[in-house]
Write a protein that binds this DNA or RNA. Structure first.
Lengths: 138, 138
DNA sequence: CCTAATGTCTCTAGCTGCTAGAGGTTCAAG
DNA sequence: CTTGAACCTCTAGCAGCTAGAGACATTAGG
């Protein structure tokens, strides 16, 4: 049986975050010692590892919650899990596309300023004031 | 003079968000009518347009606040504004790099699942459970 | 000029995913 | 048995809004 601190050390998830995941229903209520401290088993550690990895991949708490619920029924078709992962990928790609547009604009804006003029001639301020200076919608 | 609704229509910034920006000190306190409603002038509209554009480019409220403060002294060198923009670009590039790694992993994970097996054979669940399935740190 | 509809006001609370702190209790090593 | 680290619960805070309640202001039409 592991204390919450051990769980934290093994997964890299901070102690208050573990408690938060419990509140959110991602982790089952842990057993308690006579003194009311949480004690976890291997299954709980595995689940926390799963959660950590899914969070690192950008899945929301809600999506992870659904994945865990699906995981309770391993005999079911995996279409649901597959859909959640594809949704997440679509989300990542959308954010990626947006950031790429921002990168283009910001690079242009920054390149236009050497940093040694005065502000009223500054390309940075002018570019921010007027979207027409941009080459893309963003 | 423009009402807050007109400001909203012209900039695409929602009415409560305009009030929020005022609270945050990005917009000066507006004049008020006898009935206590905000009335804005062209300078306020220009500033809100600036804020909107900077937000669209991902600048934080705090960064925008600094840019506005710098903008009050157009005779000063523009090194400060330039630095803020370069910081923002660096931030965007860091997030971009992270999302690109996620995209690689998620694409791999999703590709490994046709969606018509059962969950216990599902690549999605296995990949999420174990980081060793990943090709990158992410 | 009056009325009805729409716009605006302030205030509070909620969203995501944590993080920090206060004030108190329990555990484990020596 | 003592002591120091780890743990407990609870509340509040972060960004950047968004939503809703309940009340007042403005404006267009008749």
């Amino acid at each position: 049986m592991f204390s919450i601190g051990t769980m934290s050390d093994r997964t890299g998830v901070k102690v208050p975050t573990i408690r938060y995941y419990e509140d959110m229903g991602l982790l089952a209520l842990a057993e308690r010692t006579a003194g009311n401290q949480r004690r976890y088993d291997q299954a709980a550690l595995d689940r926390l590892t799963f959660i950590r990895h899914a969070r690192d991949l950008g899945f929301s708490i809600e999506a992870i919650s659904e994945l865990i619920a699906l995981g309770e029924h391993p005999d079911q078709p995996c279409a649901g899990a597959s859909r959640i992962a594809r949704d997440q990928l679509a989300d990542v790609r959308a954010r990626l596309a947006r950031l790429q547009r921002l990168e283009v604009e910001l690079t242009r804006i920054v390149a236009g300023c050497s940093g040694d003029g005065t502000l009223d001639q500054c390309h940075v301020m002018a570019a921010l004031a007027d979207h027409d200076h941009c080459v893309t919608e963003h």
